[in-house]
């Protein structure tokens, strides 16, 4: 083996660097959180109390908030990113389509803290004065809107801003997928006399795995998002089915409690336990989403 070739094998070490870091973090979070699971068992997940004076730690409000805000963000981002995909890919004339696409891409580079700043200051106040009061006044028989919205800081706001922040990412994913579909499928559809909406139906069914993957990947990102949520959710430690109520997510709670958790016995493991759950779910969704995409790509190009 010549010198250059041997040197190449040295690359193996730094290549494993990223994997090593991931493993280290996983191990760290698992080991610190273990005592919480062992000591508290199921009550860690079902209790709604966070009370250091009595050493009672329950994660339910944080878990509920995390799931709810992520689901809301999916509801927001999916139809919108699909629409943008059709607009950019098919409906809009070339020039407009390029502008639109570029705009979406640019928005994707925006830091989430700016979404949080705008969401917490501007959007939350707007929604409170208009949408929320309406929702409660007319739809309060639905448990989702049964509580009176006392401010713009609640689960719904957090979920909506979260969803808005993911529009660029999800749209780009879908547009790339749309472009990967061999044009002959679409041309055939039109030559058979399909109307646009019927072709779109065809496209959607072809893209189903990609759509699911995009939902998974968006969900994975939403679960761990911190700054947006901390600025819009109201930070109330309550597990409520009502979307108009303030709430909390695991990441936002970590922002509030992490630095002080070191001096309260039991608090740090409990916090880490929440982190572990979110992380595992996030990694799982991310992994599955990526696998789905590569499988779909394989099918499409085949």
């Amino acid at each position: 083996m010549r010198k250059g070739d041997r040197a190449f094998y040295l690359l193996l070490v730094p290549s494993l660097f990223s994997s090593a870091i991931l493993m280290l973090i996983l191990i760290h979070v698992t080991t610190v959180s273990l005592p919480a699971f062992v000591d508290r068992g199921l009550s860690l997940l079902t209790s709604v109390m966070w009370s250091p004076p009595t050493q009672d730690y329950g994660l339910l409000p944080a878990l509920v908030g995390t799931i709810l805000t992520s689901l809301i963000s999916i509801v927001v981002v999916t139809p919108i990113s699909l629409s943008i995909m059709f607009l950019v890919g098919d409906l809009l004339p070339r020039g407009l389509s390029r502008v639109f696409h570029r705009l979406v891409e640019v928005m994707g580079a925006l830091p989430t803290v700016i979404y949080g700043l705008w969401g917490g200051f501007t959007l939350s106040r707007f929604l409170h004065g208009t949408v929320y009061t309406w929702l409660h006044d007319y739809l309060s028989y639905i448990p989702l809107f049964s509580c009176r919205p006392l401010s713009g800081q609640n689960i719904l706001t957090a979920g909506v801003v979260l969803g808005i922040s993911m529009i660029p990412y999800a749209s780009s994913l879908l547009i790339e997928g749309y472009r990967a579909i061999p044009s002959r499928y679409i041309e055939t559809a039109y030559s058979l006399g399909f109307y646009r909406f019927e072709t779109y139906g065809l496209v959607t069914s072809i893209m189903k795995p990609l759509l699911i993957a995009s939902i998974m990947l968006s969900m994975s990102r939403a679960l761990g998002e911190t700054t947006i949520v901390a600025l819009t959710i109201g930070n109330a430690y309550v597990a409520s089915p009502c979307l108009l109520s303030p709430g909390i997510t695991v990441s936002a709670w970590i922002v509030s409690q992490f630095e002080s958790a070191f001096i309260y016995p039991g608090a740090l493991p409990a916090l880490y336990a929440g982190a572990l759950l979110v992380m595992v779910l996030s990694l799982l969704l991310s992994f599955l989403g990526i696998m789905l995409i590569s499988k779909w790509r394989g099918v499409i190009y085949g």
């Binding site: 991931l22 979070v29 911190t226 990441s251």
Partner: peptide, 8 residues
């Protein structure tokens, strides 16, 4: 890795 929440 994409799935690790950055707060962690």
């Amino acid at each position: 890795f994409n799935g690790i929440p950055t707060i962690i």
